[in-house]
Write a protein that binds this DNA or RNA. Sequence first.
DNA 1: GCTTTATTCAAGCAAGCGCTTGGTCTAGAC
DNA 2: GTCTAGACCAAGCGCTTGCTTGAATAAAGC
Lengths: 199, 199
Amino acid sequence: MRESARLFRERGYEGTSVRDIAAATGLQSGSWVYHFGTKQEILRAVMEEGLRRALERIEAIAVRRGGPRARFEALVHAHLETLLAPGQDFIPVLLYDWRSLDAGARPAIVALQARYEAVWDRVLGELRRSGEWAAPTAIDRLLLFGALNWIAHWYRPGGPLGIPALARQAVAFFLRQTSRRRSGPERPVRRVPRRPRSR
Amino acid sequence: MRESARLFRERGYEGTSVRDIAAATGLQSGSWVYHFGTKQEILRAVMEEGLRRALERIEAIAVRRGGPRARFEALVHAHLETLLAPGQDFIPVLLYDWRSLDAGARPAIVALQARYEAVWDRVLGELRRSGEWAAPTAIDRLLLFGALNWIAHWYRPGGPLGIPALARQAVAFFLRQTSRRRSGPERPVRRVPRRPRSR
DNA sequence: GCTTTATTCAAGCAAGCGCTTGGTCTAGAC
DNA sequence: GTCTAGACCAAGCGCTTGCTTGAATAAAGC
């Protein structure tokens, strides 16, 4: 599953052959069938396993004590780790190969996603009520997820910004500076050495 | 090219066969070769053409008179139209099938993308200087692009929010309310009838 | 009327695809 | 010592893939 996720992420589901997977795991070209049956089942297993692990992490964060801002910061950091850290290919596959997943396998994944979103919605609700959320709009969670998930498109390990720095920048982007200094003056743009290229 | 873009968007580049394209355009299975030579060339042409059209639109916006906020709003609206409007499959293909594009064809596309980003950077710079940009961070353009581009993942035509409404919500998300009332009190979350489901 | 040019057809080739088949090997249970 | 279950091999089947081939058709140029 780990090797499959890596290959799916790099080449896409349709761009990866079962022979590629067999070769990457040191098996003969047909031996994988014993474990999964169909190629689709590999994809489903990768997505479900990735989502299950991610859920476990953020549900633990959601029950922490402390202010909503701290929980939000932890959520963002966990989300980016799940998305970008080395060896974490499961969630990118979920995000970028969704259209390759058979319709019959989708409802189970969608249900897990709903649980994932529910955790965020709870924390975002607290942030809105406390006035720390910068711009309440009807689709702010979707815009938030977009901004975060898109990082997987341009992030390269070893770049100028690591995952903790990215998480800090993202949090600063979404939240007012602090809840005490809610409407303070402008802060100058802080530059990083070299900006990564977007797409 | 139009049919190819539609198929690539729906099924992905690897998930679309040249026979699918031929059938969609009423040709026999090998006749497309006369026009493009290779399947890769179709992909390249789709991406380049889409980017060229998008550039034409936003470069016209960038030279408009008026405040930076008006230009920013127009940029967001144009970007979303390019991404979501019916028949606009070229840019989604560029965004979501990039890894299928041969390395040799990439530099030309990257050069066009750089021009696209330069237009945005100019307007964003004006917004930062005027104090209207809500949260200046080192990667704000990338986060902005992510939030916008991700909409293509969950947007369905005919949903509760049309493209102009989405553009308004996005602008509200990124900018302070108005330049006059820069640090006003909270506004309540405005709800839409039914929220679309994210992924 | 003849030639050229642009476009498409009909057939098919070589390679790669997901998956199947029948069999082998190994470790543990009895 | 025999049996069973788990894991894998080696070969290959039927089908699809991107692309090629040589010929046909139609319009335009001279």
